[in-house]
């Protein structure tokens, strides 16, 4: 499968099944498009009509290069993975990551919050006890098989409303590491309201990553992330986040915002954060009921695509300069990256990754919490709903008609099961608006890599 596109002056050709990515000239771009359907003579003739200024021997040369790439298994490679998909879905049940809902309560009243200020579809406001937290870690260790690297994310609501329990769970995890051959990676997501020096110091010692929620420009942030009283939160949290990011040496964190229909010019929010000194930035499209006035609509796509293009071009301009930064959705690893198994299975929700409520109930991921049909069991008795687990286990890029022939499948892994369910009532579908944005972001990310390679070659 081939995907080819033009962006920011670059002609890019992706060979999807091998993972090879090529930057080509105009002639080769046009030849690759017709290479499989025309004979050599027909192709040369077609190119003579389209590019009369180019000599035939140059066309012969380009044709030969395409054939070489094909012989090297770097173009027109067939899918070698789908025949093994049945074995793939028979893999053993292993849990390697938990999302601990440490607090089903929040001190902000964000308009777009999928968690309803921490109450998740009408659940009571409550905090996780240390006993439940410890039991969750025991459950993880017991169900992790031979996996050594385990992950625990402190999520909410707002986790800092239950900070003493967070610390207790981390300390318990470090004790478990000594008695089991396991390594915990703890992460924390916070709105920053309660951040202080003591919390930063502990987090810098123990948290592999922290996610700091801020939407960008003050007026954008304050419109969607007020206190319950309606008061603005930007001036409260921004100085704390700047201090926190600096204290982590500008690594192992993200400032993370949400853009909505209110700020389709979201590149300005990204650059606002970058110009304040943040180096690790994510600003992501809201996913919500399409009836909400701030929900993104299909008709917004051209505007959003242009915004991603503008942001990508700006990042190229800043490459290797003091004001460069990382943008989460443009980060792509072409030289390494995960293996095909991982690319096919994605996040592992409902199988390798589970969410735990304050009382110990298990759900496929944080996005499903509170949806009664998705209750999987609890940390005391384990996973009881094996039928549901099997549904998630069989969820992969080949189980989704929209994904099987999509060029982005090995970079996106079939998208988010929760978004698919919310859009179509089925985890094996795909959230169409999200797909279009994801494909655009992958195209931009690869263009940035092409531009960086060119700039490196000029040095």
């Amino acid at each position: 499968m081939i995907h080819q596109y033009k962006n920011n002056g670059y002609n890019i050709v992706m060979d999807v099944n091998s993972g090879a990515i090529h930057v080509v000239d105009d002639l080769m771009y046009d030849m690759i498009e017709k290479f499989q359907e025309l004979s050599k003579e027909e192709l040369i003739q077609a190119m003579q009509e389209k590019h009369p200024e180019i000599a035939v021997d140059v066309m012969e040369e380009a044709y030969s290069e395409i054939q070489d790439l094909k012989d090297q298994q770097a173009l027109f490679v067939e899918d070698a993975y789908e025949p093994y998909i049945d074995e793939f879905t028979d893999r053993p049940n292993v849990v390697k990551a938990l999302c601990l809902h440490i607090a089903h309560d929040c001190n902000l009243a964000c308009e777009y919050c999928f968690a309803d200020e921490g109450t998740y579809n009408g659940m009571p406001k409550e905090l996780m006890s240390l006993e439940v937290g410890k039991k969750a870690l025991d459950f993880l260790v017991e169900n992790s098989g031979n996996r050594r690297n385990l992950e625990v994310d402190f999520f909410g609501g707002e986790p800092l409303l239950n900070w003493e329990v967070v610390k207790g769970i981390v300390n318990y995890g470090r004790e478990l590491e000594k008695t089991h051959d396991k390594k915990f990676r703890f992460t924390l997501t916070t709105n920053g309201v309660r951040l202080n020096d003591e919390i930063m110091e502990f987090a810098n010692k123990e948290m592999g990553n922290v996610v700091l929620s801020i939407d960008g420009r003050p007026e954008v942030h304050n419109r969607m992330r007020p206190f319950p009283s309606g008061a603005a939160s930007y001036d409260i949290v921004m100085p704390k986040f700047q201090k926190f990011a600096e204290s982590r040496n500008q690594t192992n964190y993200y400032v993370r915002g949400t853009f909505t229909r209110n700020n389709k010019d979201f590149a300005k929010d990204v650059l606002h954060l970058a110009d304040l000194g943040f180096k690790e930035i994510s600003v992501e499209p809201v996913v919500t009921d399409p009836k909400e006035p701030y929900a993104l609509q299909e008709e917004d796509l051209p505007e959003l695509f242009a915004e991603y293009d503008e942001l990508a071009a700006e990042m190229v301009k800043r490459y290797k300069k003091d004001n460069e930064f990382n943008f989460f959705h443009f980060m792509i690893d072409l030289a390494g990256g995960p293996c095909v198994y991982k690319r096919l299975s994605g996040c592992g929700s409902g199988t390798e990754y589970l969410a735990v409520t304050p009382t110990g109930d298990l759900y496929p991921c944080h996005q499903f919490v509170g949806k009664k049909d998705f209750l999987m069991g609890n940390i005391f008795e384990g996973v009881k709903n094996n039928e549901l687990r099997d549904q998630f286990k069989k969820c992969n890029v080949y189980s989704k008609d929209k994904c099987r022939n999509c060029f982005a499948k090995f970079y996106c892994s079939g998208g988010c099961a929760a978004n698919s369910y919310n859009a179509h009532g089925n985890i094996n579908d795909a959230y169409d608006l999200g797909c279009e944005l994801q494909k655009k972001r992958i195209e931009c990310a690869i263009m940035i890599k092409a531009a960086e390679a060119e700039l490196d070659a000029e040095e």
Binding site: V13, V23, M28, R185, D333, G337, C412
Partner: peptide, 29 residues
């Protein structure tokens, strides 16, 4: 080659499960 520059030479690795929960920017562990 005159008409093409290949950006990546490493083909997809055709698992151990030790990598982080996520895919495009993930590192193999």
């Amino acid at each position: 080659m005159k008409h093409v520059k290949t950006l990546n030479t490493k083909k997809l690795c055709n698992g151990c499960g030790e990598c982080q929960t996520s895919v495009g920017n993930q590192t193999c562990e």
